[in-house]
Nucleic acid binder design. Structure first.
Lengths: 149, 149
DNA sequence: AACACAAGACGTCCCTAGACGTCCCACACT
DNA sequence: AGTGTGGGACGTCTAGGGACGTCTTGTGTT
């Protein structure tokens, strides 16, 4: 816990301390930083102030904000991978379809199969399939399964 | 684990065994029975079969099926209370408004206040408020709170 | 042929938890 | 007056877990 320098603005100081942690590797590249709430507690500042500090770091391209996820520390010379699970599943399924690995008419994995494969919830799997259906790439037959259109 | 009586139908047997548990109080009145999945496992039967057995008990007014909740054992001479949390909150809030305890223009409890009061999730609180707003009973002012219309 | 049963797939709903996003307001300090 | 801070409220999204509802398809018994 550092002292508060009276007179100076506080959010730049917090930005400094967070930047130090990032370059030192305390917050590993590619990982998610502690949440706003956690950092607010640690630094004893309001969310307002903390967010300003984080905005500074984002301006410096040190972190990327991912809503519903958190702040991800940027990895140099590596493009950021998909932060959302359902988007990841969605991408892999779409690739299988577009590459012809799952030809039109073929049956796609069941929800429970994907649930096991990706170690995720049924909700997330369904979300991915919902978008594929929305995109017109697949059709669903109740009680039977999903098929490539 | 009892034996299976060859020749007889199995779902009536399961209904019998479940009925016995209910009248014996193994499944207390007002409580929720084990889920279909759990009972399927215990009796080593398909969901189909188990549901038939449960349908028998529901016909006999011994249990009530509550989607997303489970089977509730009926309480004699007590009308069943609201099974869904958000409906319960909704009901109490509406009563406060209609009884004039929360007069028009007055501010309603914040989401976090209700969250604490009912020991529930923010989602559930929001759900209740959403229905009140849908019903035109309240209005929401972003950043300020909710008010009786 | 009809029925019971098994097994599995998808559909819908309730509930919890946690992130970030936005807005509003009071206060202090400049 | 303007800015920084603290603090709070509501908005939206991702994710996980679980219950019942419905549909389809086999298999075996009657």
């Amino acid at each position: 816990m550092g002292e508060y320098i009276t007179g100076g603005r506080v959010f730049p100081q917090i930005a400094d301390r967070l930047r130090t942690r990032i370059v030192a590797g305390d917050y590993a590249a590619g990982s998610v930083m502690p949440s706003e709430a956690a950092l607010c507690k640690e630094f004893h500042v309001a969310r307002n102030t903390l967010r300003r500090a984080l905005a500074v770091l984002e301006d410096e391209r040190l972190i990327i904000t991912v809503p519903a996820k958190g702040r991800v520390v940027v990895e140099r010379d590596r493009l950021p991978h998909e932060p959302y699970r359902y988007r990841l599943i969605l991408g892999e399924l779409r690739k299988m379809i577009e590459d012809g690995i799952s030809p039109p008419g073929s049956r796609l994995p069941s929800e429970s199969a994907l649930q096991r494969r990706y170690e995720t919830s049924r909700n997330t799997v369904r979300r991915a399939y919902a978008e594929l259906e929305q995109a017109g790439l697949i059709t669903t037959r109740h009680g039977k399964g999903r098929y490539v259109r």
